[in-house]
Computed example of a mutant assay.
Amino acid sequence: MSQPIRKVPLTHGAQWLIRAINLGTRNPRAIFGAALLLIAVLYLVLYLFTMPLRLGADSISMDSFISTLVLAVLAAVLVLPVLLGGLMHVIREAENNRPVRARDLFAPLRLHKALPLALLGLIQIALALICGSLLLWATGPDFWSQYQDMARGAITGRITNVPSAEQPMLVILVQLAYYYFSTAVVLVSVPLIMFSGLGISDAVKRSLGASLWNLGSYLFAAMLFMFGAMITGLLVSVASLLLMQLGSLLAPTIGQLLVMALFAVYGTAFLVVMCGTCYFAWRDVFAQDEDAPTTPAAAANPGHFEA
């Protein structure tokens, strides 16, 4: 029997984000270790699939270059939902005070959830193709050729006219709809597959229904998350410049290592908050009472921030 889709108030979008920020108080070694491991695995996948570009950099053709990049992106898109499912599994176990380690990131493989999670990547690709087709229709037949001319002109220093779409408002609406539904459907489908026991088809249908039924709370959470990402991203960029300058006083390599470490920490925190927000959204909208944490201190006071 499928779980009902709950209608939640707008303010729950903020509560999901606050609880995700407070995740650092629950087994931080496992949660942040799993997020860091996710980044490492994703980087390894991209490194392996783009290795032909480095081995044959002088002789590779443009068609081979593009096909290799497309294959690398496709591999990353298929692997990412599996890793996100593993990170949400670690978050769930930590929230319920069960023993969990960073390597439980690979739990979808053990639980035989990897294939349906990977198929979510194909759905995201399909949504991107649909969005691209709508954009081609909304921008007009000459927009992309003019855009390419403008890009080539920017590289060579030649000034060209900025292309304009035939239906600019439609372009904006299509892009907003794509970003909202592709993110909401894919990210909420991950816990539905991992924890609710749904197949790929049912998970996508129910996550789509939830994204419409709880449009206000989903959008509110997304806006708060993006605003926070913009502010923190700006602060991290400034901090990286300072670290590069300070580290370069000792050696250029030290400055580069400090910046890499800073961005690794930021990326890890970004993933934890993003997956945590989606996990709490799933728990609030779909999960039954037994999915609540065993020590609900944060849930009882959702407006409280922990260090």
Rank of each mutant, 00 (worst) to 15 (best):
A114P: 01
D284R: 00
A165E: 07
A128P: 00
R101T: 15
Q15F: 11
H304F: 14
L46G: 06
Y47K: 02
D291K: 02
L242C: 04
L257A: 10
M1R: 02
P52M: 09
I60K: 02
A126W: 05
H12W: 07
L129V: 15
L115T: 14
S2T: 08
Q175Y: 10
L42H: 11
A102D: 03
A72G: 06
T232H: 05
I200Y: 15
P191T: 11
L48S: 04
G56K: 09
L119S: 03
I193P: 02
R54I: 04
L136M: 11
A184R: 03
L262D: 10
F280R: 04
E93L: 12
L258A: 14
L198A: 01
N27W: 10
V8H: 03
T68E: 10
P302H: 05
V73C: 08
T160R: 12
L78M: 13
G303L: 12
L262S: 07
L80V: 05
H304E: 14
Q175M: 14
E306F: 10
M274L: 15
V259L: 07
T232Y: 14
A72W: 05
L87G: 01
H112A: 12
P252F: 14
L120M: 10
A107T: 13
A281K: 01
H112S: 13
A281D: 03
L215A: 14
N161L: 13
W282A: 03
K7Q: 13
G157H: 07
A126C: 05
